[in-house]
Structures are given as structure tokens and as C-alpha cells.
Amino acid sequence: MAPPPLPTIAPTIALLGPGAIGTTIAAALHEAGRTPMLCGRTALPSLTLRGDGGDLLVPGPVRTDPATIETTVDLLFVAVKATQIEAAAPWFAALCDARTVVCVLQNGVEQERRIAPSLPGSPVLPSVVWFPAQRQPDGSVWLRGKPRLTLPQTPAVGVVVAALQGTRCAVELAAAADFTSLAWRKLLQNAVAGLMVLAGRRAAMFSRADIAGLALAYLREGLAVARAEGAVLGDAVAQEILAQFQALPADMGSSILADREAGRPLEWDIRNGVVQRYGRFHGIPTPISDLVVPLLAAASDGPG
């Protein structure tokens, strides 16, 4: 399948949710001379991305009031957490119309289904985010790998490819069936990262034989559900994902662990609950999910 034609006029771009992933995308765009409008909950004068090549400052400000938005945009990157979609509805109304392409930079395999009801008929483009970015105590974001997105090959993808062309963020296009497989592979990775929350530990925990065994069993449980949903993933995927965790720096965390440490609501449903829900739908036993999911849900409720 040939790639979609690129727009001949530079698109107007906004980014909603300048957290770790959002800051990385904003920095990539700014570096290429395509600085997006920044929108979020917290007013900031700028964003800072840290990496091996030094710091990159993205000029703001971060706008916090959707009522001040005067016009819609061609492309909206949505990097708020799935737990914040409902609260983001005023932003969608202000930034989007039926022609706005909405690229969702969120975890999970239900991105389109969850966000589409809040949009004014805008085309929704799910993505798979393949880079480790961590927010630091000073508010900056530490990018600890090369940024890469996988997007489905659809008519709407051209505007995203054009926006990110020539930036530090690589874009890969996948046919629908391949995208399903890749999205579920990333979902399995996200699900296992939830074990960090329950242990209160970072990547070093996966060097323990007992944790490695638990992670493998959990991955194989999710793999059965993923295949029932149409993902084409071999048996080796479970061991490959575990090996990725074991190869991480010992102090590498995950976004769900960062949320737990900060006392924020957790994305437990789209990362872990989905395996349990789809397993039940397909009649697949999910004994590990049946233990992990309620514990994560309880942790998301906060103290007390």
C-alpha cells in the first residue's frame, strides 16, 4: 500500500497534555520549526526536554483555558491520560472541527472508541508510542531513547506524517492487521509494567527469578487474549518483552508507577483491566489479571 500524499500547506498543530510523551512530541515539532500550540491543566512558560544531546526548550505558554482558543487546528495531538478524557472535552470542542485529525498518544488498544464520543466528528488516529520518557521533579522531561510512533495506514495519517517529517520522532505506518498486532504487543508491555506499582519497584525487579516467572505467566495470559482479538503474535513475544524489561536501566520506571508515586489516578483499566475484560468476553481464563486488576484499581483510589 502506497503512503498517503502529504499536505502541500503546513498544518496548524496543537498539543493537549504536555506531560512526558506530549513534551517529547512538542520538542520534536519545535526543533523542526513547527512549534505547536500547547494546551494543558498547568500554566507553564515553556517545556524542557532533556536528552543525550542536551536540553531543548519549547516556548510556551501552556494555555489552560479552552475559552481563549480562537480557531480550530488541522492536527491535534492528544497526550492526556485516558483518565482525563472526560475533563478534556472543552478542549476538543475548542480545538477541533470535522476536518481536524486527532492523533491519540495514549496507552491501550481502545483509543478510538474511548475518545471519539467527545469529538465533533473529527477523524481519530490511534498510535503506538515506542519511547521511554520520564517527567523529572523539576518539571522537565528526560527522554531515554529514540522517539518512534507507529500509526495505522489510513487516509487521515498524511497530516501527521507531514508534521513529523524530518523530526527526531520517527513514524512507521502499518496496515490495519499489523497495527492491531503491534498495539496489542505494546499493551502487553504496559500491562506487565503494572507489576511495578504493586511492588513499588522499578525495572531492577525483573531481574528476580520469581518476578520474571510471574511476568512471563502474565504475558502469556495476555497473549491468549490478544490472539483472540486478532493479534498475530508468536509464543516468543512473552520472553522478548520480559527480556526488554530486564535490559532496562535498573532505575527505569513507568508512567503508571510515576502516577502511583504522585498519588494520581492510575490507567489500570486501559492497561490491565482490558486483558481481564476481553478475556471474559472470549471465555479465556485470566487468573493473574483477576488478582492484579482489583489491586491496581484499589491503588488508584488513593490513600485510606
Rank of each mutant, 00 (worst) to 15 (best):
Q84P: 08
V124A: 04
K81R: 14
A88M: 12
R148W: 02
R135W: 04
Q84K: 14
T154L: 04
P152Y: 12
Q111C: 13
P117H: 05
V141L: 06
P117E: 04
T150I: 13
L151W: 03
G108L: 12
V104W: 01
G121I: 11
E86W: 00
A116F: 03
V109S: 03
L149G: 07
L119D: 03
S140H: 12
A82R: 07
P123H: 00
F92C: 11
W142Q: 14
V141P: 06
E110W: 10
P123A: 00
A94L: 04
Q136N: 04
Q106L: 06
V80R: 10
A93N: 13
A94Q: 03
S122K: 00
F131I: 07
L149W: 02
Q84E: 15
F131R: 05
L143G: 00
G108S: 10
S122D: 05
P132K: 06
A89S: 15
A133H: 07
V141I: 02
S140T: 13
D138V: 08
P120M: 12
P155N: 11
D138M: 00
A116G: 02
T150S: 15
V78I: 08
S122I: 00
V78L: 03
V78G: 02
C103H: 05
V78C: 11
S118P: 10
T100H: 07
V80D: 07
E86T: 15
A87V: 07
L125C: 09
C96L: 09
